[in-house]
Design a protein around this nucleic acid. Structure first.
Lengths: 235, 235, 235, 235
DNA sequence: GATGAATGAGTCTTCATTCAT
DNA sequence: CATGAATGAAGACTCATTCAT
């Protein structure tokens, strides 16, 4: 099992090996169920070395979260096309997001499933990252609303809700896509559906937003009309 | 602490007390960190009794998941207005969902955060419930597409993706709404924003879907029309 | 080894067994070197039971110190003859002290050697007891000075110093007597030299070496003259 | 914060640095709690070097004990005035003892508190030194008895007991004096009370409380006179 | 001469689980 | 029906000690 034993490796390298092992193990077992013994074994080193370099299980988990958070944010940031329209930026960002989570399913699992579930030191870290992303999305939605000529129509609180919904939808899709990928992957598929998933996401969210910024609202009786009384009926 | 000691309680009642205590404790601490000791203490019974009735920690957790799953599905099902249009049904279902999760935050936390994070026996159970809900949503989406005259155009896989996105968005909003509710609650507020949250969700998803079933697609360049240059409506 | 296994023992009894085992083990090995494993084994129970009843190694050590301190103080207090002169009281107290330490060498070792050597939580506890004893001795010395008609001549600080020296001497003698007893004991000697040791101590401290070398001896009845009836003075 | 890194230091010096660090650390933490890591860090060298020079923790502790024992014995021996009377010699020895322990509190703590508490290899070493000192005191007491014309009256066993009591008292006073000194020291006070402490000790032991309460005082020059001016001089 | 890299062994502590009453 | 008494097994963490450079 594990990698080939290689002795006398410089610290930086060993540290990375350990973090990789930790990501894998935390993703597979969860924070509590993952034992330092297993992490050390997966990393191909002895337990004391893990403690020497990473101090404690908590610190190790924290470090993992930080590393994976930063990697994810960096991937999304790098993917966003700087000069584009809001929808284009959102799309490229989503593509980066789906590509990264598909390529690093364990890291994503740690962030999305484990870190949020295990008490304050960690939940806070992920929440911070998520807030960062939600803020970015909120900004894009605002910009999109302006581009669509809808000035100040959407209450801030409403936009924030939409952003949360969008991010939640994206997270859910990322998980879904990963599961499907994991099962179906018989060999080396290049993170297959990042583009497709991003498109699905845009279709789901953007077209809806398009109408929304146009003044439409959904209401129990059907689509509501806007202020001017124009029909917004679905039929 | 713990409940008031009461002897000679019928089994069904005792069992419910234990399950309630378990839900509370699992939600608070997580599966691994919750100890049978604490659960027994919170339930106000001795540990052996917990084992006598619920067999093991795994069984206990399973039973909790089953109970909470069924309660959630029942709540959503009951909320759906039977004879209405697809959007109306989705809306009422969402309202039921948000109302139930707001009323039972611990149960929802166990389902959403804990059960999925702790390995196979449990993740599967929640996945089953989620599948049930996604299937229901998928069905509604299909019906909506038909209502909109869009016959068979949406690939099944696409609809499934949308359903997942929708459910993910709803889950994300549920968490968001609960957190905000928790903070703002100064006394006894009747899970206030279930309706609002459902509306936000519909605005986010449905209006988008409306266009979608109308043949619109988002594409890198913006909303695309179909090949013939006709207005995006596909009739 | 250890006592005969006896199952299902009431808590109070088990707790005492554990404390006895702890005293023995702490005395033999020292605080740090004593392992909870060994203590449990000596007590004839499993380790978790020790933790269930005594909480932690620190708590266990603290409890041991408290129990042994109280036992020692009680023994000395009980031995002091209430109505006697100061020297008589001191003598009887010393006898009680030496008798108790001879009968409970492990307890004494824990108090005198281990507790004071292992950091703040514990050193403080023993210091408190020691202070109590030193205060008692100081009081006796003051009374003795008065009885001897020496009013206010001895500065308080000086008396305190003397009391410390006296207690230190007694402690040293207790250790010395125990070691000699341990080695020499081939069978069951009833704590042999408590009276002798107390007498030695009184000769040393009370009458002073000066008089002692002049042939005087302290005895329960007062200062003794030598065989020839010469006055005790050496000059 | 160890010492400033200095390369290529002769072995003898490095060894002394390590021993100093060890004394400090053992005194602060105790034998078991002191880690070779900390000792190496305090000494400002790497751990392997400590092992290269001092072999093992046990060896290191042994070496420390030996060094400190010898230093203490040397200090006492050097302080004793060779040609004086027995009391004078005892007094000067005590002064040397108190001065040395005040100047080297860590060394004294290691000898008095740590070495005796941690099992056989070490307790024996300190016992040997103590025996040496007790023997010296015993000898002095014998000489004093002779000087006083008391030939063979004091049983050897009795004298040994007295010597032990005396040494114990001195040790207790040393600790007491040091603690009081530590607290009161606002800057650089030259171990102030060695003389005072020695005087207290002599008053306590040599003259005896009996004479003391009669108004006599021991002083470097011999017994002091009482209030009425009667001579109390021995010679 | 000196050290960064590495570990086997052991310690405290906790927990799910079971009897005997 | 209900529980006080008890434990096997495992997990986080530390430490004295050694190579290879």
């Amino acid at each position: 099992m594990g990698a080939v034993k290689s002795k006398r490796v410089p610290r930086a390298v060993r540290e990375r090996q350990m973090l990789d092992a930790a990501v894998l193990t935390f993703a597979r077992r969860g924070y509590r169920a993952a034992s330092m013994d297993e992490i050390a074994e997966v990393a191909g080193v002895s337990k004391p070395l893990v403690y020497l370099y990473l101090n404690s299980k908590e610190d190790l988990f924290s470090t993992v979260i930080r590393r994976e958070s930063e990697a994810l944010v960096a991937a999304v940031t790098a993917a966003v096309e700087p000069g584009g329209t809001a929808d284009r930026q959102l799309w490229s960002g989503l593509e980066g997001f789906f590509a990264h989570t598909a390529e690093h399913p364990d890291g994503w699992a740690v962030l999305h499933q484990q870190a949020r579930t295990h008490g304050e030191p960690f939940a806070h870290q992920v929440a911070a990252m998520r807030t960062e992303i939600v803020a970015f999305v909120t900004e894009l939605l605002g910009a999109a609303a302006k581009e669509a000529g809808c000035v100040g129509e959407l209450a801030e609180r409403e936009v924030a809700g939409l952003a949360h919904a969008l991010v939640g939808a994206a997270e859910s899709l990322a998980e879904w896509a990963n599961v499907r990928t994991d099962e179906g992957a018989s060999g080396e598929r290049e993170h297959p559906s990042a583009k497709d998933t991003a498109a699905t996401m845009m279709n789901f969210a953007w077209t809806g937003l398009g109408r929304l910024t146009g003044g439409e609202r959904w209401a129990p009786g059907g689509l509501a009309v806007d202020r001017e009384g124009r029909s917004a009926a679905r039929g």
